[in-house]
């Protein structure tokens, strides 16, 4: 958890620290989420965390339209995990709930355009 905070530093400062000779001593911790090595990355992407894990939402009900709406794209598609950061376990429950919700016309299968 602490690692994520340190990796939020801007890329410019990171370049400076790597170019200057590192003083002898304990090596500063590497960014957790970012790929190490030569800086091919233009910007740092913050590590996303699962909303359901952090907020401790256990039950994902098909009736909770407000909650589900946040994980549905504009046209009604389920947003993939890689975009929302939801963990595998909760994504499975979530997609189940969204599908049930669609069945009872609380969520659209495809939003009219």
């Amino acid at each position: 958890m602490n690692m994520a905070d340190e990796t939020t530093s801007t890329p410019s400062t990171e370049v400076q620290t790597t170019s200057t000779p590192r003083p002898a001593g304990p090596r500063p911790p590497r960014p957790a989420g970012a790929p190490g090595g030569a800086g091919g990355r233009k910007f740092f992407r913050r590590k996303k965390v699962c909303k359901f894990c952090t907020e401790k939402i256990d039950a994902i009900s098909y009736r909770d339209v407000r909650l589900l709406q946040g994980f549905v794209a504009e046209r009604g598609k389920i947003v993939p995990r890689r975009l929302t950061g939801v963990c595998t376990r909760h994504q499975r429950k979530l997609s189940q709930a969204i599908k049930q919700s669609r069945n009872i016309a609380l969520l659209p299968f495809a939003a009219r355009y």
């Binding site: 401790k56 256990d58 039950a59 098909y62 049930q100 069945n103 009872i104 016309a105």
Partner: peptide
């Protein structure tokens, strides 16, 4: 015009377990 039936007992059991653990 439309209906849906959802079985809840497994889910309730799971939630009780999570709550007890927490």
């Amino acid at each position: 015009i439309k209906f849906i039936t959802v079985r809840m007992d497994e889910e309730e059991k799971r939630l009780a377990k999570v709550k007890a653990l927490r």
